[in-house]
């Protein structure tokens, strides 16, 4: 699944970012490295969302959200 399929209020673990090199590195530099947990704070019908990564909020367009492969975080 991608982050775009995620639900509001849940946390997801980043598996891979499939964007061009510059965009991928930009996301990783912001802390979206593999294994990082991303919380979806809010989500719109068009797939744009507000996420929290390592304590910082970002707004992602649907294009970005759709390029991040994630898995649901198991409650531990």
């Amino acid at each position: 699944m991608t982050l775009r399929d995620g639900e509001k209020g849940k946390g997801y673990r980043v598996l891979d970012v499939s964007l061009g090199r510059a965009a991928k590195i930009r996301l990783e530099a912001l802390g979206m490295t593999n294994g990082t947990t991303v919380f979806i704070m809010n989500k719109k019908r068009n797939g744009s969302m507000v996420v929290k990564v390592r304590g910082t909020r970002f707004a992602f367009g649907s294009g970005i959200a759709g390029a991040v492969a994630v898995e649901e975080r198991r409650e531990d």
Partner: peptide, 10 residues
């Protein structure tokens, strides 16, 4: 067609 919005919400 891809929506590339990426902005920090401080």
């Amino acid at each position: 067609g891809m929506n590339p919005l990426l902005i920090e919400l401080p």
